[in-house]
Simulated assay, not measured.
Amino acid sequence: MRVVVDMTRCQDHGQCVFAAPDVFRLDDAGKLAYVAEPGEALRADVEDAADVCPLQAIRIEA
């Protein structure tokens, strides 16, 4: 699984961090950082994160 975040759409609301804290985090500057290729075991959390993103900036590939 590959996670892609459209950083031009992302406004760092952080909802994805709550849904999938093993994949998404806010760095010291408050900007989103994420694991681009998390393990398949985290798919459900990543799907939840994509669903709760207010700007629908998160996409899952394969």
Rank of each mutant, 00 (worst) to 15 (best):
M1H: 05
V4Q: 07
V4K: 07
V4P: 00
V5E: 00
V5W: 07
V5K: 05
D6K: 02
M7S: 01
M7W: 11
M7F: 13
T8V: 12
T8L: 10
T8K: 09
R9Q: 12
R9M: 12
R9L: 15
D12I: 00
H13E: 10
G14P: 08
Q15L: 15
C16N: 04
C16T: 00
V17W: 07
V17D: 04
F18T: 03
F18A: 05
A19I: 05
A19T: 06
A19M: 13
A20V: 02
A20L: 10
D22A: 14
V23A: 06
V23F: 11
F24I: 02
R25T: 01
R25I: 00
R25Q: 07
L26N: 01
L26Q: 02
D27S: 13
D27L: 11
D27F: 13
D27Y: 12
D28C: 00
D28N: 12
D28K: 14
G30R: 12
G30V: 00
G30C: 03
G30T: 00
K31M: 11
K31H: 06
K31C: 05
L32I: 06
L32Q: 03
A33D: 07
A33K: 11
A33Y: 02
Y34A: 10
Y34W: 15
V35N: 12
A36D: 14
A36E: 15
P38A: 03
P38D: 03
G39W: 03
G39A: 09
G39Q: 09
E40Q: 14
E40H: 12
A41W: 11
A41V: 02
L42Y: 11
L42W: 11
L42K: 13
R43F: 11
R43H: 07
R43L: 15
D45R: 13
V46F: 11
D48S: 14
A49G: 08
A50E: 03
V52A: 08
C53R: 08
C53I: 02
C53T: 04
P54H: 06
P54L: 04
L55N: 06
L55T: 01
Q56R: 12
Q56K: 14
Q56D: 14
I58C: 02
I58E: 06
R59C: 04
R59G: 09
I60N: 03
E61T: 13
E61Y: 05
E61S: 09
